[in-house]
Simulated scan of single mutants.
Amino acid sequence: MLTIASTPVLYPLTDRAVLSLSGEDRVKYLQGQVTCDVAALEAGDATPGGHCDSKGKLWAPFWLANLGEQLLLLLNRSLVARQLPELKKFAVFAKTDVEDVSERWQVFGLAGEGLSHWLNHHVGDGNLWQGGIVIPVAAEHALLVLPVEAELPELPRGSEQEWLGLMIQAGLPDMSAEHQGEYIPQMLNLQALGGISFTKGCYMGQEIVARAKYRGANKKAMFVLVGKATDKIAVNQDLELQLGDNWRRAGTVLSHWQQGEDCLLTAVLNKDLDADTVFRLKDQPDSRLQLHPLPYDLVD
Rank of each mutant, 00 (worst) to 15 (best):
G132D: 12
I133A: 11
I133F: 01
V134N: 07
V134L: 15
V134T: 14
V134D: 12
V134H: 13
I135A: 05
I135M: 14
P136W: 05
P136Q: 03
V137A: 07
V137E: 08
V137L: 07
A138K: 05
A138E: 11
A138D: 15
A139Q: 14
E140K: 01
E140M: 04
E140T: 04
E140S: 08
H141Y: 07
H141R: 11
H141V: 02
H141Q: 13
A142K: 07
L143P: 02
L144S: 11
L144W: 03
L144C: 10
V145S: 06
V145Q: 08
L146G: 04
L146W: 01
L146M: 04
L146C: 00
P147Y: 00
V148P: 05
V148D: 02
V148S: 10
E149Q: 12
E149W: 00
E149C: 04
E149T: 04
A150N: 02
A150D: 01
E151C: 03
E151F: 00
E151H: 06
L152W: 13
L152N: 14
L152V: 11
L152C: 15
P153F: 03
P153M: 04
P153E: 01
E154V: 15
L155M: 07
L155G: 04
L155P: 01
P156D: 13
P156L: 12
P156M: 08
R157S: 13
R157L: 15
R157K: 10
R157N: 11
R157Q: 13
G158S: 07
G158T: 07
Q161S: 10
Q161N: 08
Q161D: 12
E162W: 01
E162N: 05
E162A: 12
W163H: 14
L164K: 12
L164S: 15
L164A: 15
G165D: 05
G165C: 08
G165K: 02
G165M: 06
G165P: 01
G165S: 09
L166D: 04
M167W: 02
M167K: 03
M167I: 12
M167Q: 15
I168S: 13
I168Y: 09
Q169D: 07
Q169R: 03
Q169H: 05
Q169E: 12
G171K: 14
L172R: 03
L172F: 05
P173S: 14
P173E: 07
P173I: 13
P173Q: 10
P173G: 11
D174P: 03
M175T: 12
M175E: 14
M175Y: 12
S176D: 10
S176A: 15
S176I: 10
